[in-house]
């Protein structure tokens, strides 16, 4: 049985390479059918904002890439409730269907995976 991996993505989309790297790990794992979960935490939730125009700052379209996650077999997507609330984001405004978790849910989620990597 392959080990499950939770990827915690906590950087804003254009803050540096971290958001892209977290997604690349997820897609690579998904391509090999590994059990992968992806949690958007802290500024990472800004990756989920719909309608971003990365071409204006000459960045690749991370938002479009994120939409491919279900096709890569990655459907365990989560966001931290407090991170959304702190940033004035609501679940309805997000570009991907994610499960929104409170603090207790986050601890339980972490517990559930064999490995965790935070970027």
């Amino acid at each position: 049985m392959a080990k499950s991996l939770l990827i915690v993505s906590r950087q804003a989309p254009w803050a540096g390479p971290a958001a892209r790297e977290a997604l690349d790990i997820a897609l690579a794992g998904g391509a090999f059918d590994l059990p992968i979960g992806l949690l958007f935490l802290d500024d990472g939730v800004f990756q989920l904002v719909a309608g971003q125009q990365p071409q204006r700052i000459e960045q690749k379209d991370l938002g479009a890439n994120l939409q491919a996650l279900p096709l890569f077999g990655i459907e365990s997507l989560y966001a931290a409730r407090h991170s959304l609330a702190e940033r004035g984001l609501t679940e309805e405004a997000l570009s991907l269907p994610v499960q929104v978790l409170d603090d207790t849910g986050l601890a339980a989620l972490l517990d559930q995976y064999d490995q965790v990597i935070t970027l």
């Binding site: 391509a31 491919a68 096709l71 890569f72 077999g73």
Partner: peptide
Amino acid sequence: AEFQLSPATRPLIRY
């Protein structure tokens, strides 16, 4: 055009 990336084999099959 939709996802701005080339799919690996499994996602290509699913799509």
